[in-house]
Amino acid sequence: MKAQVERAARFAALGDPQRLRLVETLAGRGEASISDLSSGAGVTRQAVTRHLKVLEGAGLVQGMMRGREHVWALDADGLATAEAEFERLKAAWRQRLARLKLLVEGE
């Protein structure tokens, strides 16, 4: 049950457009401060911080201090777990499509 809750949290975290944008930005930059992430985003630093906390709770990003600045980066382990979950779902979907194809072509 705990694993299902964790999976749901990961999918929910990625389901928000602002959070997905943050993940994409971090994927491109590697690390970024809240100031960098909120610049030009059309949302406040506080909103970016809230979104990052949700992503952190889902195990997708991690925050660290660099001097006096709080810097954020993707969490490689959390992303690998999410990727494995997507791959599992993709494999199940492909199996269903293959069975459907056999059923349709067999008639």
Rank of each mutant, 00 (worst) to 15 (best):
M1Y: 14
M1K: 12
Q4V: 13
R7S: 14
R10V: 08
F11K: 04
F11M: 07
A12F: 06
A12H: 00
A12Y: 01
A13G: 07
G15W: 00
P17N: 06
P17R: 11
P17H: 04
Q18C: 14
Q18M: 15
Q18N: 14
R19C: 00
R19V: 04
L20E: 11
L22C: 08
E24W: 09
G28E: 11
R29T: 12
R29P: 05
R29H: 15
G30E: 08
S33A: 13
S35V: 07
L37Q: 06
L37M: 08
S39E: 15
G40R: 11
A41T: 03
G42C: 11
G42V: 07
R45M: 04
A47F: 02
A47E: 10
V48N: 03
T49H: 11
K53N: 13
K53Q: 14
L55R: 01
L55E: 03
G57D: 15
G57W: 11
G57E: 14
G57S: 12
G59D: 08
V61Q: 00
G63K: 05
M64S: 15
M65G: 00
G67V: 04
R68N: 05
W72T: 00
W72V: 05
A73K: 14
L74V: 14
A76T: 11
D77H: 15
D77W: 14
E83Y: 11
E83T: 13
E83Q: 08
A84R: 13
E85I: 04
E85G: 10
K90F: 11
R94Q: 10
R94W: 02
R96Q: 10
R99I: 05
L100E: 03
L100G: 01
K101T: 10
L103E: 14
E105W: 13
E105G: 09
G106Y: 06
